[in-house]
Amino acid sequence: MKKLKEQWQKIGQYWLKGKLEGIDFGHGLIKFLPPQKKFIDSQKDYCVYYGGLGSGKTLALLIKLILCCLCFPGNRVLLGRQYLSDIERNLLPDLFDLLPSSYYKYHVKQGIIEFFNQSEVLLFGLDAMQSGSEQEIKKAQQKIKGLNLGQVFIDQLEEVEFEVFDMLNTRLRRKGVPFYQIAVTCNPANFWAYTFFIESARRDPKRAANIELVQGSMYDNKDNLPERYIERQIEGHSEDWIKRYILGEWSKDLLVQETVFDKAHIGRWELMAKPPIAVENGCQIWEQPKNIKYQIGVDPSEGHQDPSSITVASEEGKKVAKFNGFISIPGLADKVRFLYSKYHRPLIIPEVNGPGHALIENIRGLNLYCRTVFEHRDNKETTKLGWKTTHASK
C-alpha cells in the first residue's frame, strides 16, 4: 500500500496544477466534462455546481471527494445531505462503483468510510441539525463542533438551512491539506444560496474571488444520457422551466408554472425586503417584542417535500418574525413554542390540513384558534382547533 499511497500523492500534485483531464480509479477512464473539470480543479473557499437535471453534478462531487481522500493522506472530509438515508440510497452506490473495494472499508454503524491511507469520509444526515426537538438539534451541533475537517461536500444544498452550512464552515481546520473548501451541488432554486453566493459575488469583487460558480446544462452530459432523454424532459414544459431545469440557469427571473405570484410583484416585494436584526433558535427576527398584540400563523408540512412556515405579525400590520424550513412536526412545535413565549403568548392560527393535526397535538394547551363548524348530522354548531383550508375558505 506504500507505493499506492505515493502514487496517489503524485497524482494529487498533478491535479492541484490543473493538469487532470480525467481520472481512472481502477474501472476505466472517466473524462471530465468542461464544467466538471472547473468544479474539480477549483481550490476556492466555496465551490458551487448548480444546473440542470442529469448534468453530471453529483458525479463531479464524488470524484472530487475521492481525490481529496486519496491524494491527501490522513485527510478527513464530511459528505452530507439532508437525510442519511439519501446518502446511503443515492450517493454510496455510485461512490463504491467508482472505487476498487481494496481501497476502503465501510464502517456502517459509525457512518465512516476509511481509506487505506488513513483518510476518512464522515457520512452525515444534516437534518439532525435542523429538525427534531431543540435538544436533539443541540446534540447534533455539539457532535459537529468536535470535528476537524479538510473539506465538506454537500449534495442538494437547497435542502439544507444556512445555519447548518455556516456551522460546517467553522470546522474546516484540519492540518496538512493544501486547501480548505465547502463543495456543493444544487438545483437552481430560489433559496438562501442564491443571495449568499450569486448576489453577494456580484456586489463584492473580493468576495467573488473566493467563490467558484459552475453552471451545468443537461446538454453538457448529452453523450452519457439515454437516447431522446432530453427531448422527453422538454416535452410539455414552459420556456422558463426549460431554462432552469434543462439549461441550468439560476435567476430569480425564472419561475416555474406552479409559482403563485407574478414576477413583477415579487420584484417589488424584494425592493422592500430588509435583513433580520437577529436570528434566534433558527427564527429570523425583524422586531423584538413590544407592549402590543401579536398573532402567529403556522403552515405545517411533513418536512420532506415542502418547507414549514411560521409567521409572527403585530397589530401594527408588520411581520416581526418568521421561520421557514424543512423540519419535523416535533421540531416545528418547538419553534412555535419559542416564538409563542417570546411574543407574549399570542393567538396561534395553525392550518389543520394534513400534518396540521399532528402539530396541534404537539402544541395543545397553548392559545390556539378555534373555528366554528356546523355539524349537519347533529344539526348544531361546534368548535374545532385550527384553520381548515378548503375551496370555500380560500
Results as ranks from 00 to 15, higher is better:
Asn187His: 02
Val177Thr: 01
Glu159Val: 06
Gln156Ile: 03
Arg174Asn: 12
Glu161Asn: 15
Thr185Met: 09
Glu161Ile: 11
Met167Val: 14
Val177Gly: 00
Glu158Thr: 12
Val152Cys: 10
Pro188Tyr: 12
Ala183Tyr: 11
Ile154Asp: 08
Val152Arg: 07
Val152Ile: 15
Phe162Gln: 15
Gln181Ile: 05
Thr185Ser: 14
Glu163Asn: 13
Leu157Cys: 01
Arg171Asp: 05
Pro188Glu: 07
Leu172Arg: 10
Met167Gly: 04
Thr170Cys: 00
Phe179Ser: 07
Phe153Glu: 09
Thr170Ile: 01
Val164Ser: 08
Val152Ser: 05
Pro178Phe: 12
Tyr180Ile: 07
Thr170Ser: 11
Phe179Met: 02
Arg171Val: 00
Arg174Phe: 13
Thr170Gly: 06
Asp155Asn: 09
Asp166Met: 02
Met167His: 08
Phe165Lys: 14
Asn169Asp: 13
Val164His: 08
Arg171Ser: 01
Glu159Asn: 10
Tyr180Asp: 06
Phe165Asn: 10
Ile154His: 13
Phe179Thr: 01
Thr185Phe: 03
Thr170Met: 01
Ile154Thr: 05
Val160Cys: 10
Asn187Ile: 05
Val177Leu: 00
Glu163Cys: 04
Phe162Trp: 15
Lys175Leu: 10
Arg171Phe: 03
Pro188Asp: 09
Phe179His: 07
Val160Phe: 10
Thr170Asn: 07
Val184Glu: 03
Gly176Phe: 01
Val164Ile: 14
Phe153Gly: 07
Asp166His: 14
Phe153Leu: 04
Val177Cys: 00
Met167Glu: 15
Asp166Asn: 14
Val177Ser: 00
Gln181Gly: 08
Thr185Cys: 09
Met167Ala: 05
Pro188Leu: 08
Leu168Glu: 06
Val160Arg: 08
Pro188Trp: 14
Pro178Trp: 10
Thr170Ala: 00
Ile182Phe: 01
Lys175Gln: 13
Val152Gly: 02
Pro178Ser: 08
Leu168Gln: 07
Glu161Ala: 14
Tyr180Ser: 12
Asn169Ala: 10
Tyr180Cys: 04
Glu158Tyr: 03
Arg173Pro: 10
Ala183Thr: 04
Glu158Val: 01
Phe165Tyr: 15
Glu161Pro: 01
